[in-house]
């Protein structure tokens, strides 16, 4: 049975394989700015032990429970590497560099006549491990991206109070339905908190407006109106104005102003506030 044979072989030559594996990794290049020698050694030793353990249970099928601890270890390792900033190929190289020492070991066992089988088995095994590590690496990366997206969403939708009863929402970056939903919620919440009569939505920083975005903006404005606050849109750039007209979006009786300053002036006027400059 080639699996148990391989397990036996690996167990006997564990130290030797580990040494060769480490030197293979070194030859491929270790990112010493991200990880130190000791960690590499520990990781390699743990992984090799897990491989031997799994093989010793005579599990040919990679989905068998015997491979669970190994997979878990690989997952942890790849995820950490994804977070630490390793590239995908660096993570995969860690596993793939195990091939060379194993092939070498089998080559030297002239007493076995099924060496081709063993090589094939090792090949299959290491490839699987490599694929798994890349997969976990991607999952780790995606988790990082998701987290960043979430924090970006929170950061990018501030609602600021300009005056007693005047709120402003400076929108920056592309608007999608997710983001508009958050803008809508935080704006309405703030309207309740500050009892503001007027909200200025400034879209100077919005690169493009399509029908969806316009629809979302109108929804926000309608919701604010239902609560008893008025909305002013400011900062519509010429191209965007042209697009809105071209698309046939009906802005209805929504007040629009070219700049935030104009919108602010209008809201002060509606609140019966007059600014008086000091005479010198």
């Amino acid at each position: 049975m080639s699996v148990s044979q391989l397990a036996e072989l690996l167990k006997q030559n564990e130290e030797q394989i580990l040494d060769k594996w480490l030197s293979a990794q070194r030859a491929a290049g270790i990112r010493f700015d991200l990880i130190d020698e000791r960690n590499v050694q520990d990781n390699s030793r743990d992984l090799l032990k897990a491989v031997i353990m799994a093989l010793a249970q005579d599990a040919d099928d990679f989905d068998a429970p015997a491979w669970k601890p190994l997979k878990a270890q690989l997952e942890r390792l790849s995820r950490t590497q994804a977070r630490q900033g390793f590239s995908a190929s660096e993570t995969a190289t860690f596993v793939f560099s195990l091939k060379e020492p194993l092939f070498e070991l089998i080559q030297n066992q002239s007493q076995y006549d099924n060496r081709v089988d063993l090589v094939w088995l090792v090949n299959k095994l290491v490839d699987k491990l490599g694929l798994f590590s890349v997969e976990y690496y991607m999952a780790g990366r995606e988790a990082v991206i998701r987290e960043q997206q979430e924090s970006l969403l929170e950061l990018s939708t501030p609602v600021v109070q300009l005056w007693d009863g005047v709120l402003a929402v400076p929108l920056i970056g592309a608007l999608d339905s997710n983001r508009t939903q958050i803008v809508m919620e935080s704006l309405l919440q703030k309207i309740v908190e500050t009892e503001s009569d007027i909200a200025i939505i400034d879209i100077t920083g919005v690169p493009t407006v399509d029908t969806m975005v316009a629809q979302h903006l109108l929804k926000t404005i309608t919701a604010a109106k239902l609560m008893g606050a008025r909305c002013i849109i400011s900062g519509i750039r010429p191209q965007i104005a042209a697009t809105i007209v071209h698309l046939g979006v009906e802005l209805g009786d929504v007040v629009t102003k070219s700049s935030l300053a104009d919108a602010f002036k209008l809201s002060l006027k509606e609140l019966n506030v007059r600014l008086v400059g000091n005479a010198r």
Binding site: M184, L188, I191, V192, K219, A223, A224, L226, M227
Partner: peptide
């Protein structure tokens, strides 16, 4: 009107 109610109506 509560924000949630306004959003629902819209």
């Amino acid at each position: 009107m509560q924000p949630a109610v306004a959003i629902t109506l819209v």
